[in-house]
């Protein structure tokens, strides 16, 4: 039974995987500005555009590392709409001040509308304008979640939401970008990347600027349902305990075969669960075509 054919997209992925094997992987060099001996905490400016705050919530779902340590010891959160005490003009000047000082980690959550900038405005400015200004003085940019990485769900709508790389290209801004896709982004993908960057490590990334450490393998590679896939056993009814517990979810639309991520290895929410272990098909949320081109999510891929 042949369920999958290789698409152009997968071919590109295979080629970029091959480059990695030859040691030709693109990579990001971390900074040594914030060594452990330095007293200075790195500043974080966190911009939210067409977001749902789900990636913020995901980072806040982390139990280890401890959030209070991150907030008090590791980073200086200079701007973050959802959690900062400042509001109105105080928040606006906090952002201006941080951007003028420069040298911060810029985290972008949510897509930015490309069809008409008026679909997302904060402080009377379009999020595109705010992003361009903040990107110029950033040390590095982290696009958190599917929307900021590749446009995600909003890309399919009339607002034409696009990811960070689209706007870096559009405005000719040359900055280091790391994409941490997912809907939402896993907290460890975020903390791991920030920590590696601050420790001056080299972060190997794939053709879509995702760290290979977390996105080097597919869900299928490590899926506990893989042995049943190999034996051509596919779930057709969630009420059947045997099928539910171990059969492959391909007939229910699982995209794990072509989706990169280490969900089966690190699991979610302090390691208690993740989609395919829970009997839910992988939606492909870490892949650039997500969501529009991967729909339907619950029907077998044609």
């Amino acid at each position: 039974m042949k369920l999958f054919t290789i698409t152009r997209r997968q071919f590109i992925k295979m080629v970029s995987g091959g480059l990695a094997a030859l040691g030709l992987t693109p990579k990001v060099k971390g900074t040594e500005l914030f060594s452990s001996t330095s007293l200075k905490k790195p500043a974080v400016v966190w911009l939210e555009a067409q977001d749902c705050a789900g990636c913020t919530e995901s980072v806040l779902s982390c139990l280890e590392p401890d959030l209070k340590t991150f907030l008090l010891d590791t980073a200086a959160i200079r701007y973050h709409e959802t959690i900062m005490k400042a509001e109105g003009s105080i928040a606006e000047s906090a952002l201006d001040e941080a951007v003028n000082e420069g040298g911060y980690i810029l985290v972008v959550e949510g897509s930015i509308p490309a069809a008409d900038a008026r679909f997302c405005r904060v402080s009377g400015k379009s999020s595109e304008e705010t992003f361009v200004k903040a990107a110029g003085n950033a040390l590095v940019i982290i696009a958190i979640g599917a929307c900021a990485s590749y446009g995600g769900i909003p890309r399919a709508g009339v607002t034409g939401g696009q990811g960070v790389s689209y706007f870096l290209d559009k405005h000719g801004i040359n900055k280091t970008l790391i994409n941490l896709p997912g809907c939402p982004c896993h907290p460890l993908w975020f903390f791991d990347t920030v920590t590696a960057f601050l420790n001056g490590e080299i972060i190997r990334i794939d053709a879509y600027k995702r760290p290979l450490k977390h996105f080097g393998q597919t869900i299928h590679d490590n899926c506990p349902r893989r042995p049943r896939y190999n034996a051509n056993k596919f779930l057709s009814d969630w009420n059947n305990p045997g099928e539910r517990e171990s059969f492959c979810l391909a007939l229910k639309g699982c995209k794990g075969y072509t989706t990169h991520g280490d969900c089966p290895l690190i699991k979610w929410n302090d390691g208690v669960n993740y989609c395919t272990a829970n009997g839910a098909p992988c939606s492909g949320c870490t892949e650039p075509p997500f969501y529009d081109e991967l729909s339907p999510l619950y029907a077998r891929e044609e």
Binding site: K41, R78, H80
Partner: peptide, 13 residues
């Protein structure tokens, strides 16, 4: 002192 900010708890009204 640069770098030692009390964000997200400050600044505020």
């Amino acid at each position: 002192v640069e770098g030692e900010y009390a964000g997200p708890l400050l600044p505020s009204y």
